[in-house]
Amino acid sequence: MSASPSLAPYSAIVSRLRAAGCVFAEDEAELLISTARTPDDLAAMVDRRVVGQPLEHVIGWAEFCGLRIAVDPEVFVPRRRTEFLVTEAAALAGPRAVVVDLCCGSGALGAALGAALDHQVELYAADIDPAAVRCARRNIGSDGQVFEGDLFEPLPATLRGRVDILLANVPYVPTREIALLPAEARIHEARVALDGGADGLDVLRRVTAEAPSWLAPGGHLLFEASERQIPQAVDVVAREGLIPRVAGSDELDATVVIGTRPASRTGPVG
């Protein structure tokens, strides 16, 4: 049973959260109160939030594309802007699409795309972080398979040349800018999910180097990048023989690059 507001004065919690710098203190207080099982549980959750732990880690889930995605401590919290990537992928996916969620983190993208397509997909996901893999397995459940390993390495070889939609939520923060991130991300999320190397595109280069051999003819690679990285990211995609396209959402402040394998090729490449 969830705790009721009477177990801990709502106004007192709001005051503590506001003093700690929580902009949406009222909404957060309601979430904490509705999630807590006991008064002691609620007090501990408020204490964790006040010292700066991400709300999603405190309550154990994040809302993403209308789903409640389980998010364990230190696992990357799915951002709302990434919902745009899922929307773009859903528009490109055909019936019974083969989908790979690479650098899957909590598995939010694969789970959301599967739900958007009425679970009529063949879904695979992979991440190098064991904590993220455990989380993704809970979120994806029986709708797909989740593998632990570095990028494509743990995926079944039978997927080569068959992937219709390759979601690659690669880290793209330049190493020197990690220190500038909000403390919630910098301290409480795994660095491997944030650090994209010197220019933020190191992991992307590794993904695009192998992507053509995994994509089906006409298949699509989708990933996010910052607006200032777009020219370089587009060049990286084009150099590997994929046809690049850029899509953006002003509402979500999101930019997605889509690289499409030419449909004229037959069979795996690379």
Rank of each mutant, 00 (worst) to 15 (best):
T82P: 09
A44M: 04
P95R: 10
L55A: 01
F84S: 05
E63R: 14
V77S: 03
M45Y: 00
I69T: 04
P73L: 08
E26K: 14
G66Q: 03
I69N: 01
L42N: 01
E30Q: 14
E26H: 14
D72E: 14
W61S: 07
A89L: 09
G94C: 00
I33L: 13
S34L: 13
F64T: 11
L32C: 02
P54T: 05
L85S: 10
L55Q: 01
D27R: 15
V58N: 11
W61V: 01
V58S: 13
A70E: 09
T38W: 03
V58M: 13
D47K: 03
P95M: 09
V71S: 08
P54L: 06
E83P: 08
I59H: 10
Q53H: 14
L32I: 01
L92W: 12
R81Q: 06
E30M: 11
Q53T: 11
V50E: 06
A29H: 05
R81T: 01
A90P: 14
L42R: 01
G94Y: 00
V75H: 10
V50S: 05
L67C: 12
L31N: 12
P54N: 09
L85C: 12
V86L: 05
I59G: 07
S34I: 06
A43Y: 01
V71M: 11
R79P: 05
V77G: 01
A44D: 13
V58I: 14
R37L: 11
G66T: 00
A93N: 10
G52W: 13
P54C: 08
V50M: 03
V58Y: 07
R68Q: 15
T35V: 00
L55S: 00
E74W: 07
D47Q: 08
F84Q: 07
P39C: 10
M45N: 00
W61G: 00
L31A: 15
Q53G: 02
F84W: 12
E63I: 08
L31Q: 15
T38L: 00
E28V: 07
I59T: 09
E28N: 06
A62M: 09
G60A: 13
V75L: 13
L55M: 09
